[in-house]
């Protein structure tokens, strides 16, 4: 079983999602089914097959180094759940 409850807890922590203990068994079961679906990939012969990261066979375009900034801090921060003096507020960051 790839997705035991510990794996769910560890993965949820990496993803910063607080799963209540009561939900973990059901989530583990669902994730196990999904991993069961994708498990068949492992058996496919892919020696020397190149990876495909993107559908476009193009190069990254480059932007000119010129300022495009509309100085719109107020609107950009209008949906902020907590802000003061132009700063976003969060519980104290411990470094």
């Amino acid at each position: 079983m790839a997705f035991d409850q510990d794996t769910v807890r560890r993965t949820a922590h990496l993803a910063r999602i607080a799963l209540p203990q009561t939900e973990i068994p059901a989530v583990a079961d669902q994730l196990e089914r999904i991993m069961g679906l994708v498990e068949e990939l492992r058996a496919i012969e892919t020696t020397d097959v190149p990876i495909m990261a993107h559908p476009l066979d193009l190069d990254q375009p480059l932007r000119p180094d010129t300022v495009v900034n509309q100085d719109q801090r107020e609107v950009l921060m209008a949906s902020a759940p907590a802000a003061e003096h132009g700063l976003f507020l969060v519980p104290k960051v411990i470094e």
Binding site: V38, L41, R42, I44, T46, V49, P50, I51, M52, A53
Partner: peptide, 15 residues
């Protein structure tokens, strides 16, 4: 490698 890279390779095959 087992999942992500593998899937990217299979993506090539599908294309």
């Amino acid at each position: 490698d087992a999942y992500y890279r593998k899937a990217q390779q299979v993506r090539s095959l599908i294309r």
